[in-house]
Computed example of a mutant assay.
Amino acid sequence: LLAEWREATGTPLYEALGMSEISTYISTSPRVPIKPGSPGKPQPGRRVAILPVEGTPDPLPPGEVGLLAIHRSDPALMLGYWNRPEEEAAVMRGDWFVGGDLASLDEDGYVWFEGRNDDIMNAFGYRVSPNEVESVLIAHPDVQEVAVTELPVRDDVRVIAAFIVPKPGAQPARDALLAWCGERLAAYKCPREVVFLETLPRTPNGKVQRKRLAAG
């Protein structure tokens, strides 16, 4: 998309990451060069860290994946959730606000989004991000759109499933897609089921509704 935009307009496309509770706080700009795949760096004056999913809220080193957090002293951060103390307590960890996004920081300070913590799948005892599996499948030449989530096969067993929207005129084979994943992912991260759809269910703002896919 970045390359197509630059070719069509002759101008760069800058990204920003934010949420309702704080607006945008990570971005690229003329002073922050674009790294494809990253929304950029914390804006000047913003204190951002990656915290462990569980345990004490001590910032993790570069390269480690955890919860994306911003310091409670940030003047743009919300004061709290109106009349929702339990929800507020869940997102405040020590001196940090965490919104549920998983990410990592690289050595240059760029943020790399790894998905939502509540979307993380459990495969044979390993935590697997659907984003990682989706990034592999979307690179397949016959795949237009993809969403990955868990499907229950028994009361106590869930498997990773890929929901595929093929490109117009394409007819990708299930086994070929599984082989594609097997060449690029650890075995426990590979889907066990492939479901072909005409469209993916989305919310009004365009987010894929994984829970609807999992519910069938």
Rank of each mutant, 00 (worst) to 15 (best):
W82Q: 10
W82F: 13
W82H: 08
N83H: 10
N83F: 00
R84D: 03
R84I: 03
P85K: 03
P85Y: 01
P85T: 02
E87I: 01
E87Y: 01
E87L: 04
E87K: 01
E88W: 03
E88L: 02
E88F: 02
E88V: 03
A89I: 01
A89C: 02
V91D: 12
V91K: 13
V91E: 09
M92K: 15
R93F: 10
R93V: 02
G94Q: 11
G94D: 12
G94L: 10
G94I: 01
G94W: 13
G94A: 14
G94F: 12
D95R: 12
W96E: 01
W96Y: 10
W96N: 08
W96F: 05
F97E: 06
V98F: 02
V98M: 05
V98I: 15
V98A: 10
G99D: 09
G99H: 06
G99M: 08
G99V: 07
G99K: 05
G99N: 01
G99Q: 10
G100E: 06
G100V: 07
D101G: 00
D101S: 11
D101M: 08
L102Q: 11
L102K: 06
A103T: 09
A103L: 05
A103G: 10
S104P: 12
L105V: 03
L105F: 07
D106Y: 04
D106L: 04
D106F: 03
E107I: 06
E107T: 14
G109H: 07
Y110F: 12
Y110E: 07
Y110K: 14
V111W: 09
V111M: 03
V111C: 08
W112Y: 11
W112G: 15
W112R: 15
F113W: 14
E114N: 13
G115T: 07
G115Y: 07
G115F: 04
G115N: 05
R116E: 01
R116F: 05
N117D: 01
N117P: 00
N117A: 11
N117F: 01
N117C: 09
D118M: 04
D119K: 11
D119A: 09
D119I: 04
D119E: 15
I120Q: 13
I120L: 12
M121I: 05
M121P: 02
N122D: 15
F124A: 12
G125A: 11
G125C: 04
G125R: 11
G125L: 04
G125P: 06
Y126F: 08
Y126M: 10
R127L: 02
R127E: 02
V128S: 06
V128C: 07
V128W: 00
S129V: 02
S129H: 10
S129I: 08
P130G: 05
P130R: 00
P130I: 01
P130Y: 02
P130S: 00
N131G: 12
N131T: 12
N131C: 09
N131I: 09
E132W: 01
E132A: 04
E132R: 10
V133T: 13
E134V: 05
E134M: 05
S135H: 12
S135N: 15
S135Y: 13
V136L: 06
V136H: 07
V136A: 10
V136P: 11
L137K: 14
A139V: 04
H140D: 06
P141G: 05
P141A: 08
D142Q: 14
D142L: 08
V143Y: 03
V143W: 02
V143L: 04
V143I: 08
